[in-house]
């Protein structure tokens, strides 16, 4: 896999470090009851988020899943506004109404995390239809997990994207476990790319622990979409280091399996080695980067902690526009 240039590579590395530190920090805060409703930790899946989002333009659209901190950070939202959302404070990106599972800001091209498996891909497909209707040069990316591969609506959306040749990229952020169910136990045929190909979609199974590979496949998919060549399906195989939800102590996988992925496939360790080997940075500079990330996340926690709660009297705001009742 070809390595991006120095500036890009260092940005990719830092972005992955931000996600890891954010998640490790938020996980502990969640256990202390600071995160309303708990959260879904994406540690281990950094390369998928950073690889995809680094290949998109700022104005491209994403819609995502119940596990979306990493996508949202990689999209360019700050740790401050995401941590504040986890704390359900008014300064959070959803104004404190969404917490961990409902991060989103439509005006910034983030069409939302989602509490319902598979829903994000449908919304992303709709956004791609909107892009096509308006003739804009953008793409829409729908993130989905391996669990979402077995809900019917996913394939309705994929079929529709194919027949309309929509500028859609479907990213399977495949951490291999739908809560506690291993993907291989519940997925007929087994090969997800082949399943998508059956719908006529260009499809790839790729290494979701390699940020450069994810970035490359996404970038090529984006170019095809912009050229009017339609959607692409990318199954990025990755691994979730923590439980489905914070505090989960599952027996569905072995500690050895988790350690094997961490010690041999970790996306950040892997890319640090690449950066060092390329001479883009030395160890001291990598350590310095890590320290600056640490400070940024600590600042985010302090910001969230000191942010005001939303005004309860706004509960009726933004349910509807009020325009329907107006005599035009």
């Amino acid at each position: 896999m070809s390595v991006p240039d120095k500036k890009t590579s260092l940005a990719l590395l830092r972005s992955m470090m931000v996600i890891r530190d954010f998640e490790e920090t938020a996980d502990k805060l969640s256990l202390r009851g600071k995160v309303s409703g708990g959260m879904h930790n994406s540690s281990g899946q950094e390369a998928v988020a950073v690889g995809v989002l680094s290949a998109l333009a700022e104005f491209d659209v994403i819609a995502t899943t119940h596990r979306s901190h990493h996508h949202t950070l990689a999209k360019g939202f700050t740790p401050r506004e995401i941590m504040a959302e986890l704390f359900t404070r008014s300064t959070g990106i959803s104004g404190g109404r969404g917490a961990s599972m409902h991060l989103g800001d439509v005006t910034r091209g983030h069409f939302g995390g989602n509490g319902i498996v598979g829903a994000g891909v449908g919304i992303a497909m709709g956004a791609a239809l909107g892009i096509q209707q308006k003739g804009d040069k953008k793409v829409s990316v729908g993130f989905i997990g391996d669990g979402g591969m077995n809900t019917g609506r996913t394939w309705e959306a994929i079929n529709m994207a194919v027949i309309y040749k929509l500028p859609l990229i479907v990213i399977v952020d495949n951490n291999q476990y739908a809560v506690e169910t291993f993907v291989g136990r519940v997925t007929g045929g087994g090969d997800l790319a082949k399943r998508a190909e059956g719908f006529g979609m260009r499809a790839f199974n790729i290494d979701g622990m390699d940020v450069a590979e994810v970035r490359k496949y996404t970038s090529e998919a984006r170019e095809r979409a912009l050229a009017g060549e339609g959607p692409t399906f990318i199954n990025a195989v990755t691994y979730r280091y923590y439980g489905h939800n914070v505090g989960e102590k599952g027996q569905y996988r072995t500690q050895e399996e988790i350690e094997r992925w961490k010690s041999t496939k970790d996306p950040i360790d892997h890319f640090i080695a690449v950066v060092l080997e390329q001479g883009y940075a030395n160890q001291a500079e990598v350590d310095e980067m890590r320290a600056s990330v640490r400070a940024e996340i600590e600042d985010a926690v302090a910001f969230a902690d000191s942010s005001p709660e939303p005004d309860i009297s706004t509960i009726y705001d933004d349910i509807d526009s009020g325009m329907l009742g107006v005599q035009l």
Binding site: V61, A63, V106, F111, A119, G122, I123, A124, M125, G126, A127, A128, L129, G130, I131, Q133, K134, S140, G152, R153, E156, A157, N159, M160, I163, Y164
Partner: peptide
């Protein structure tokens, strides 16, 4: 025909298409 689109019998996709396109500005 671009403004009156025939759809497959996929109600979830039809409505999702509408939701996403509406969010996008249609």
């Amino acid at each position: 025909v671009e403004r009156v689109k025939d759809s497959p019998i996929s109600e979830a996709a039809m409505v999702a298409a509408g939701v996403g396109a509406a969010m996008y500005g249609c």
